Amino acid sequence: MAGPIVNLGISSFGYAFGEDQDVASVAGTYVRDPERVLNWGYRTFHRAPDGVQATDLAAAAAQQALGRIGLSADALDLVVLAVSDVPEYLSWDGAAVLARELKIERAQTLLLTEGCGAGVHGPYYVASTMAMQPEVDTALFVAVNRISEFHRNRMNLINTVLSDAAVAVVLRRDHASNRWLASEQFTDPEHSDLLRIDFGGAVNPVPPEGWSSLTAPGGHARIREQFANDPDSFQRFLENRYERLVEVIDAACTRAGIDRGEIAHLIYLNDSAASISAVAEPLGLPLERTNAGLAPDHGHMGAADQLVSLGLQLERGELAAGEVVALCGISTGRWSATLIQI
């Protein structure tokens, strides 16, 4: 049966950003060829101070979202946290810690670690919980990205400037606006190792002697190495990125019972204008109906990109009541889409 499995909507947004950094001024401290970074088109990114971790950003965003509607954290039936970079500790549940930071004595929590796409498909887990548990009426969903510069070079992993931020949304059953319509996701596991960190886990607990994220090969070196002997496979990999985004958006539309032509806005990762356009064009949407205007001033905030953009565009009056917005993204090997009706 097409249509939402449960009626819920976003009633509040909250944000927490690292300190603004000018890309042109600091790119040379991260890479030897800063001109390559400047060509991506980013002007500003957010860098959290050394003492501010992902949980701090998540808690600040959550408190703002709750405060904007005068809601006590004790009223939450579910807390979901999506973390898209290295957590503060191993064998550690960031969602439970977030609940503790909010001074919740007893809570149902869920931790998502699927990378950048988790901010898109996270609301599905809220919706499915509400569908299965009629007593769950109010949920908090937080997506946070806080780059560990020891592990990753924020300007040499992919063709984006990685940025530190968190976004929190309060989702309420039967909320009439910003309604969740459907979510869809699928995984192609073939290339799931492309952007992994090779040390810090059980296989290689510590990095090689003398290793530094500032001098280590970037993420593109790993990609080139994996496809070195198969250029045709590499070309298919590049083409599939965008084709599968359209595929997963179409699947979400089918699940919601709407036509692709009813989508009025697209919010993708905070990528370059060219990449965002490649996703928007098959949907018949111009760049001004995407997040292309916001991306250069925020950088790629991991799982927080799409919901930050959705909230800011709402606050700016760029989205009209009744319009359908498609949020979409890619984690390594995972494509996701969520449809929101304003």
Rank of each mutant, 00 (worst) to 15 (best):
P231K: 05
A75K: 11
I158F: 03
N270S: 07
A58D: 11
A221K: 13
G210R: 03
G218H: 04
R260M: 10
S25R: 00
A96Y: 09
R196A: 15
V80C: 14
L98N: 06
N291M: 07
A75T: 04
V308P: 04
Q133R: 15
P286E: 04
A27I: 02
G94K: 09
A16R: 10
R196W: 15
N153T: 00
G322H: 08
S91P: 14
L307Y: 02
A131F: 00
E243C: 10
E318A: 05
A65D: 14
I330H: 13
T44N: 04
L312V: 07
I258M: 12
T254M: 10
A24W: 01
L312A: 14
Y89V: 00
A321E: 11
G210L: 04
Q235S: 04
Q63Y: 06
S309W: 03
V79F: 09
I249Q: 01
V97T: 14
Q64K: 11
R316A: 15
E281F: 14
V126D: 07
V136S: 15
W92S: 01
D33S: 08
D20E: 15
E19F: 00
H191P: 08
S25E: 01
A96V: 08
A280W: 07
A176V: 11
R146S: 13
N156Y: 10
A59M: 00
G200T: 09
D56E: 00
T109N: 12
P207V: 09
L102K: 14
D174P: 05
D20W: 07
A202L: 08
S177V: 06
L112Q: 08
G70H: 04
H298K: 02
V52F: 03
S309I: 01
L310G: 10
L181A: 05
A252K: 01
A251K: 05
V120C: 04
A127T: 08
L285P: 08
E19P: 02
L327K: 15
W40Y: 11
D232T: 12
T44G: 05
P4H: 08
L157R: 13
I330N: 09
A54T: 14
L310T: 04
L285N: 04
D230E: 05
Y42F: 13
A251L: 08
V83L: 02
A256E: 00
